[in-house]
Write a protein that binds this DNA or RNA. Structure first.
Lengths: 260, 260
DNA sequence: CAGTGGTCTAGACCACTAA
DNA sequence: TAGTGGTCTAGACCACTGC
């Protein structure tokens, strides 16, 4: 270990050294890293410095820390692939048995965890602008989608309260949001636009998804409209980042089995 | 501050309390948080515990830490919006003056930072499978795109060495990759498929993009092919997560000015 | 220069897991 | 129970910033 003084901090040097061992295969997937006291002795640094290094690898997704057991090299992630028809964007992630069944996923469930009839947050105000409604006329529903007994994504839906039946989206109960919305309107909503971005999990989302604060989330947000073109719904999904890919398949040749 | 014993750790309680102050406007955007020693005194905890709390807010993107100055509440992020034509996916981010100029961005530059004629990494092997080439026949180019004097995204391109002119993509020099590739092939490549996902920045990417390890990156990867349908290029872009959105605009009504 | 955040140490106690 | 990682303290020195 280089001796400080005008060089990178020790915890970073240590992190890079461990990452090298992983990349070179000297620490293969699923293998256990030396324990913190062992690394501390091996490199002659304090245990807290070791922890800082390991935390880097953890945040980079290189290792998985299991309390009381040890720290292990992560196996390559298997992603669920969600196809999007480039023309109509007809795909549902909330209530998604179809596209996910293809990937061998089962037992999807969407659960309403929160609802607000007249939401008044900062985000609510901006959504109201998008939908050309007063925020007071909107309802917001927060749902949590479980897949294979793991929390999978958090969704926020904004809809005009007046167009929903009383008691829509009871908190604490499972729901098929896509079906419930179609039923409420009497027809299927269409895509106006969709946007993809990546954000860091805030403290609240991290807790719901059982992730560390700051973990990467894939955000898919967008507006839906009626066949007449009236914009009536804003959706914002936050999906565990490394667990999902959205695929635009222009030639019908994308092969998930060969996916990287 | 709750007294430990069967409750959330103190640093998390502190983090949530500070986040509440931010959400409620009691700590408005651009305002400075109390210094670490001040918070340490106010809450009666060690400075390291304060640091752990502030690190949570940092990872969540709520605050920005400026060394030697203080910690400040972040202003809402302004994202560059990149439109994607749902039919052809004709958009270029590497050499992108057009779509980004719309958003008031200027001075984009793509710089080759690394190239390998016969790459032999794990990722290279898997790309080779996608392109139906032996890895030994491929070249990989790593580029860094600068926007407004900030590193913006890291790109990896895999191309068959045999179809490139000698000296293609000299390291350390700026390049217009899209134009250079079109010139090398003699025609424009088409999109086979595109996938969007979010990952945590690894140590290397984080360094190039001047980010913390684990920061969310938006990944856009995909295969390009010749007009005949021969798959010839694999591209993997990693873009600073919160600085970009990809938009699929199905009705031509997306208004970036009203973007959330 | 004083004040800020960044790194590091030594030592302590805790909660969790496996045997 | 022994070993793992998680939290916390007290104190030190450093690098960076603005005045």
């Amino acid at each position: 270990m280089s001796n400080r003084r005008n060089s990178a901090p020790m915890y970073l040097q240590l992190a890079r050294q461990l990452q090298d061992r992983i990349d070179s295969g000297s620490l293969p997937p699923s293998s256990r890293l030396p324990s913190e006291p062992e690394l501390s002795a091996e490199f002659g640094v304090n245990r807290l410095t070791v922890r800082q290094a390991v935390a880097e690898l953890d945040r980079a997704g290189s290792v998985e820390i299991r309390r009381g057991i040890g720290t292990f090299v992560r196996k390559p992630v298997v992603r669920a692939v969600i196809r999007v028809d480039p023309d109509s964007a007809q795909v549902r992630i909330g209530s998604l048995p179809v596209p996910l069944a293809i990937q061998g996923m089962r037992r999807a469930e969407e659960l309403v965890v929160e609802s607000a009839i007249a939401p008044d947050g900062l985000l609510d105000q901006r959504v109201a602008g998008q939908l050309e409604h007063a925020a007071a006329d909107l309802s917001r529903f927060e749902t949590l989608v479980w897949l294979e007994d793991q929390p999978w994504c958090v969704n926020s839906y904004w809809l005009p309260t007046g167009r929903l039946p009383a008691g829509f989206g009871p908190v604490g109960e499972p729901i098929d949001m896509a079906a419930a919305i179609t039923e409420a309107f009497g027809f299927e909503l269409e895509s106006d636009w969709r946007a993809f971005s990546a954000v860091a999990a805030d403290i609240a989302d991290a807790e719901r998804l059982d992730l560390a604060t700051g973990s990467p989330l894939l955000v898919r947000e967008g507006v839906n409209c009626t066949p007449d073109g009236e914009t009536v719904m804003y959706v914002r999904r936050r999906i565990k980042g490394e667990n999902a890919s959205f695929v635009l398949d222009y030639r019908g040749r994308f092969d998930p089995a060969r996916k990287i």
